[in-house]
Amino acid sequence: MVHPTSSDTVPTHPVQPAPRLSMRARSALWVWSFLAIPVLFYCVIRFYPTFNAFWLSLTDWDLMSEAEFIGFENYRRMFADPNFWQTFRNTFEYLIYGTPISLLIAFIIAYYLDKVRFAHNFLRALYFLPYITTAAAMAWVWRWFYQPPPTGLINGALGELGFGQIEFLGSTTNALPSIMVTAIWAGLGFQIIIFMAGLRAIPDTYYEAARIDGLGDWAILRKITLPLLKPTTVFLVVFISIAFLRIFDQVYNMTTNDPGGPLGTTKPLVLMIYETAFSSYDMGYAAAQTVVLFTILLVVSLLQLWILRDRA
């Protein structure tokens, strides 16, 4: 006969249970033990380097010698550098033209695609395709499209039709819009899918009620679709803005011979940071530029959330 252990015994006379954590505390412990890994990951891989970058921006670290504290020298140098202001302007040009154009085109396509029944899935896949294609590969294809004759496809077609040639990437005025077009095109697929999901989420009953009340298409769009689509729009505006502020792949791959050129007219901040850090090895200065980019991203995101907030 085996003596039952105390825990197995039916408490005929109540035994004081060992002090245990409450249900609430235990579940909190569980939650945190699962969260520990991502939290640790974020602290070590994300937050620590971020804060370290703030510190580095105040030093003259060049990757080889010890970092020396130099105060705000890097920032002073940056604000006095005309190249910095040029890239600053370029970055905002990508943002200010790129975001609304992307949004508008994505919405129009999503709006009409939503009404199309014929080959709907096929069309949707077609629009989504560029989004899942490697940015570098697309950039190179476009780069060849844009070449002057005899290699460039677009100029070749223009020549056939008897039109004059257009300098795309070789011109200080056309290069930035040319690259922006490819970036817009590449991001469109994702935005269309998000817009369509937003459109589908609007209950049909609203539309039915509107039709019964005799509202036209334009009024329905203005009074029902757009207002109810606002959360989707807010998300996309923030998402697209961040993407344009961080534009790099397209620019770098389309201008490798003269990165960000000609004459720096297409160079965005991220490319400048990349060059400062990994071509000139001027890590302190690159960190200062990164801090500026971080600040811009933060301010732009907060500003948009505030402007587009729900006033209700």
């Binding site: 070789g170 011109s171 200080t172 003269d258 050129g261 000609p262 004459l263 720096g264």
Partner: peptide, 13 residues
């Protein structure tokens, strides 16, 4: 880059 820009300023501008 300074040399590329130098030539481009003459070619393009």
């Amino acid at each position: 880059q300074t040399a590329i820009d130098m030539a481009n300023r003459v070619f393009l501008q």
